[in-house]
Deep mutational scan, measured.
Amino acid sequence: KKKREHFRQLLDETSAITLTSTWKEVKKIIKEDPRCIKFSSSDRKKQREFEEYIRD
């Protein structure tokens, strides 16, 4: 659960993310961040979390 919170925090702090951002764009920006790396090695899982984040 904590990894998820850190991942969401990373998304919060990434000012380039807007409601129209695509995962492909965002992934390029955040892929080097340790919170992104630690969250999951599964790209699909990160994408799902990102899409949920955008909906919230």
Results as ranks from 00 to 15, higher is better:
Phe7Asp: 07
Lys45Phe: 11
Asp56Phe: 02
His6Trp: 05
Thr14Glu: 03
Thr22Lys: 07
Lys24Cys: 09
Lys24Glu: 15
Glu49Asn: 03
Phe39Tyr: 10
Ser15Pro: 08
Lys24Asn: 13
Glu25Arg: 00
Ile54Asp: 10
Asp43His: 04
Ala16Asn: 11
Glu52Tyr: 13
Arg44Met: 12
Arg44Gln: 14
Arg4Asp: 12
Leu11Arg: 00
Gln9Tyr: 01
Ser42Tyr: 13
Lys38Asn: 15
Arg44Trp: 13
Gln47Ser: 08
Lys2Ala: 09
Phe50Gln: 07
Ile17Gln: 01
Lys28Ile: 07
Asp43Arg: 00
Trp23Ser: 05
Lys3Met: 02
Leu19Arg: 09
Ser40Ala: 11
Arg48Leu: 15
Lys3Arg: 09
Thr22Ala: 07
Tyr53Val: 06
Lys45Ala: 14
Glu51Cys: 09
Ser42Phe: 06
Trp23Gln: 10
Lys1Gly: 15
Ser21Thr: 13
Ser41Leu: 09
Thr14Asn: 09
His6Phe: 09
Arg55Val: 11
Ser15Cys: 11
Ala16Cys: 14
Phe39Asp: 06
Thr20Phe: 09
Val26Met: 12
Asp12Ser: 10
Leu11His: 03
Asp33Val: 13
Leu11Pro: 01
Gln47His: 05
Lys31Thr: 11
Glu32Ser: 11
Ile37His: 11
Ser41Cys: 09
Gln47Cys: 08
Lys27Ser: 05
Phe50Trp: 03
Lys46Phe: 01
Val26Pro: 01
Glu13Val: 02
Thr18Val: 02
Phe39Gln: 05
Trp23Ala: 03
Thr14Met: 09
Thr20Asp: 14
Phe50Thr: 06
Arg35Thr: 00
Arg4Ser: 10
Thr14Phe: 15
Lys28Leu: 13
Ser40Thr: 07
Gln47Phe: 03
Phe39Leu: 02
Leu11Trp: 00
Phe50Leu: 07
Lys24Trp: 15
Asp56His: 11
Glu25Cys: 06
Ile29Leu: 14
Glu52Gly: 13
Arg8Asp: 04
Lys31Phe: 09
Thr22Leu: 05
Thr22Tyr: 00
Cys36Phe: 15
Leu11Phe: 00
Trp23Cys: 03
Lys38Val: 10
Arg44Val: 13
Glu25Val: 02
Ser21Ile: 06
Leu19Thr: 06
Lys1Leu: 00
Lys24Ala: 14
Glu52Pro: 05
Glu51Ala: 07
Glu52Asp: 15
Asp12His: 00
Leu11Glu: 00
Ile29Thr: 09
Lys3Ile: 09
Ile29Asp: 11
Thr20Ser: 13
Leu11Val: 03
Gln47Glu: 10
Ile54Gln: 14
Ser40Phe: 03
Leu11Cys: 02
Glu25Tyr: 02
Ile30Leu: 01
Gln47Trp: 00
Ile54Phe: 04
Lys24Val: 12
Tyr53Ser: 07
Asp56Ser: 15
Phe7Ile: 06
Thr20Ala: 08
Ile30Arg: 00
Ile54Ala: 13
Phe39Met: 06
Ile30Val: 09
Ile30Ser: 02
Ile37Phe: 02
Ser15Gly: 12
Thr18Pro: 04
Pro34Phe: 09
Glu51His: 01
Ser40Ile: 01
Asp56Ala: 11
Arg35Leu: 00
Ile37Arg: 07
Lys31Cys: 15
Arg35Glu: 07
Lys28Pro: 14
Pro34Lys: 07
Lys27Tyr: 14
Arg55Ile: 07
Lys1Trp: 08
Ile37Leu: 09
Lys1Met: 11
Glu49Phe: 10
Trp23Val: 05
Arg44Ala: 15
Lys2His: 04
Glu13Phe: 04
Lys27Thr: 06
Leu19Gly: 11
Lys28Ala: 13
Gln47Ile: 00
Leu10Asn: 05
Lys24Thr: 10
Lys31His: 13
Pro34Asp: 15
Leu19Ile: 11
Glu51Pro: 03
Lys46Trp: 06
Glu13Arg: 00
Lys3Asp: 12
Gln9Glu: 10
Asp12Met: 07
Thr18Gln: 11
Asp43Met: 03
Phe39Ser: 03
Arg4Pro: 07
Lys24Ile: 12
Arg48Ala: 14
Lys3Leu: 11
Ser21Ala: 06
Ile37Trp: 08
Ala16Thr: 10
Arg44Lys: 14
Arg48Cys: 13
Ser40Gln: 05
Phe50Ser: 10
Lys31Ala: 15
Ala16Arg: 05
Arg48Ile: 10
Lys27Ile: 04
Arg8His: 09
Glu49Cys: 10
Lys46Val: 06
Ile37Cys: 06
Asp12Gln: 08
Glu49Thr: 02
Tyr53Gly: 10
Glu52Trp: 12
Cys36Tyr: 15
Lys38Thr: 11
Phe7Met: 04
Lys27Phe: 14
Ile54Met: 13
Ile30Met: 01
Asp56Arg: 07
Lys2Cys: 15
Asp43Asn: 01
Glu49Tyr: 06
Lys46Ile: 12
Phe39Thr: 03
Lys2Val: 07
Arg44Thr: 14
Ser41Gln: 08
Asp43Gly: 01
His6Ala: 15
Lys38Phe: 10
Arg55Trp: 04
Glu52Asn: 12
Thr22Ile: 00
Val26Ala: 07
Lys45Ser: 12
Phe7Ser: 05
Ile17Glu: 00
Glu32Gln: 05
Glu32Asp: 14
Asp33Ile: 09
Lys31Tyr: 10
Asp56Thr: 15
Thr14Leu: 08
Lys28Gly: 12
Cys36Val: 04
Arg4Met: 04
Leu10Gly: 05
His6Thr: 11
Thr18Asp: 12
Thr18Gly: 09
Leu10Phe: 04
Ile54Pro: 12
Asp33Met: 14
Leu10Thr: 05
Lys31Val: 07
Ser40Cys: 09
Cys36Asp: 08
Ala16Ser: 14
Phe7Gly: 05
Arg8Pro: 00
Ser15Gln: 12
Glu32Met: 14
Lys2Gln: 13
Gln9Arg: 05
Arg8Asn: 08
Trp23Arg: 04
Glu32Val: 00
